[in-house]
Amino acid sequence: MGQVQVHVADTDRVAAPRRRAGRTVALIAVAAVLGVIGGTAVGYGVQAQREPTPLPALNQPGLAYPAKPLPKGQEPAPLSAAEDHQAKAEGDLRKLLVPRPAGAREAEFGPRDGSYALSSYAEGFKDEGWMLEFLDENRVRRIAVRSWDSGENRSTTVHLVQFRASDTLGAVEHAEGQRDYMPEKKFAGNDGDPIKGSGNGRYYLYPVEKKAGYLDLYHARALFQRGDVMVDITIYDTKKISKSDIRSLAEKQLERL
């Protein structure tokens, strides 16, 4: 959902880009990355000149799992659907999206509910080409989205980005990559707050954007990963967004995963 701008003298809403104005996944701090790469190369050079260190002998007095299959009737019971998070994500991903709140209406400018094309998702980022390449290389399986409008000018969008089950690391890296730049001043400018029960998720409130001739713009975002699914939630409003607004929505989405 793009920036919703309302002119003070003319209350008609003006649509900017249809997706998140604050979402950027360009290579943040390129110089720092290059420094890391350079330091790594030097480290490999030093290591290559050293004598190899012999490895200790393997010691396996016993295996952690039974050497033979358990007798019939003694096998552990399979996980229930409630316990097996992977089983939940194997069905229709759209059904795992948090439902639209009562009284909310279909988004006027945001993406339509349902499955989302990889290219459409990448369009919401400053470096669209880089994001598209990242998602492709990390084997994104599918993307589902739900968006709605509520109140006078509030717009909310929820994305579920699912990676291949064998590449759970892709979901982890995508979530981490987005969280890494959030503390920078031109984004949220803070470390956010943890999403209870997520393990690695955080939610953020951005500083209010003020521009002459326009109403103030508030922005909140939540990011977390659950199994092979990365979740990205954004809220925009011309009125203040409370921490409980973004936190409760993130927690509800987490419960559904």
Rank of each mutant, 00 (worst) to 15 (best):
M1S: 12
G2T: 10
V6I: 15
A9D: 06
D10R: 02
R13I: 13
V14R: 10
A26P: 07
A26L: 08
I28W: 08
I28Q: 06
A32T: 15
V42H: 04
Q49E: 05
Q49F: 04
P52C: 00
P52Q: 00
T53W: 00
T53K: 08
L55H: 07
P56A: 04
L63M: 05
A64H: 07
K68Q: 07
P69I: 07
P69Q: 04
K72C: 02
G73S: 01
E75M: 12
A81G: 08
E83F: 05
D84T: 14
D84A: 14
K88E: 08
D92F: 06
K95A: 14
L96R: 11
A107Q: 07
E108W: 01
P111M: 04
P111N: 02
R112V: 15
R112C: 03
L118Q: 06
A122Q: 01
G124H: 04
E128A: 08
L132H: 02
L132G: 03
E133H: 01
L135H: 01
D136V: 03
N138F: 03
R139M: 09
V140K: 01
I143R: 01
V145C: 02
V145S: 02
R146N: 09
W148N: 11
W148H: 13
R154S: 15
S155Y: 12
T156I: 15
T156Y: 12
T156H: 14
V161N: 05
R164D: 15
R164F: 10
A165D: 14
T168V: 06
E173Y: 00
G177K: 00
M182H: 03
K185M: 04
K186I: 08
A188Q: 05
A188P: 14
D193S: 13
D193Q: 14
K196N: 06
K196C: 03
S198Y: 02
R202E: 02
R202W: 04
Y204L: 06
Y204R: 03
Y204T: 12
P207T: 11
V208W: 02
K211G: 05
A212Q: 01
L217T: 11
H219S: 13
L223G: 04
L223C: 02
R226E: 12
G227V: 10
M230D: 04
D232P: 09
I235P: 08
S242Q: 04
S244P: 01
I246G: 13
I246D: 10
R247W: 03
R247G: 13
S248M: 03
K252G: 11
L254T: 10
R256A: 09
